[in-house]
Amino acid sequence: MRLKALLAGLAGVLCLAAASDPAERLPDPAQEARAREIFRDVRCLVCQNESIDDSEAELARDLRVIVREQVSAGRSEAEIKRFLTDRYGEFVLLTPSWSPGNLLLWAGPFLVVVAGAALLLARLRKTAPEPELSPSESERLQQVSRDDGA
């Protein structure tokens, strides 16, 4: 079975957070995993649109070295990200901040849901009591049944 094959495959691998480049890797796997987690949220500033986790550019390598140094020095993710934004601005992080300037960005999609739901409810309420037949239709029906009766 495929699942079993996969399980066997997964069991064969102990270190899951293999590094993007062995030459840069930290000796402690837990720290390395934390560094990789941070890499995915840091933009390679000179690249088109890549995180430093993906990029082979020189600057991405430098940033990886900085982040790895700080991780191994025991600094927290928030501290490292603050260090990066102090130097390069908010642009360096791929997750936009939860700040007033980004309110529309974060809330927009959910506002669409709320607005859509409100419109749907209004429409359902307005049309809920559905008359079985319009006056002209019931008149016509009566006429037809009278004709049949005659």
Binding site: D41, G89, E90, F91, V92, T95, P96, G101, N102
Partner: peptide, 20 residues
């Protein structure tokens, strides 16, 4: 488009990546 709008309005550059 938000990075463009934000930059045009306040001059601050932000990135919107996969985490968003």
């Amino acid at each position: 488009l938000y990075p463009l709008i934000r930059e045009a309005m306040s001059g601050e550059a932000i990135s919107v990546g996969p985490p968003y």
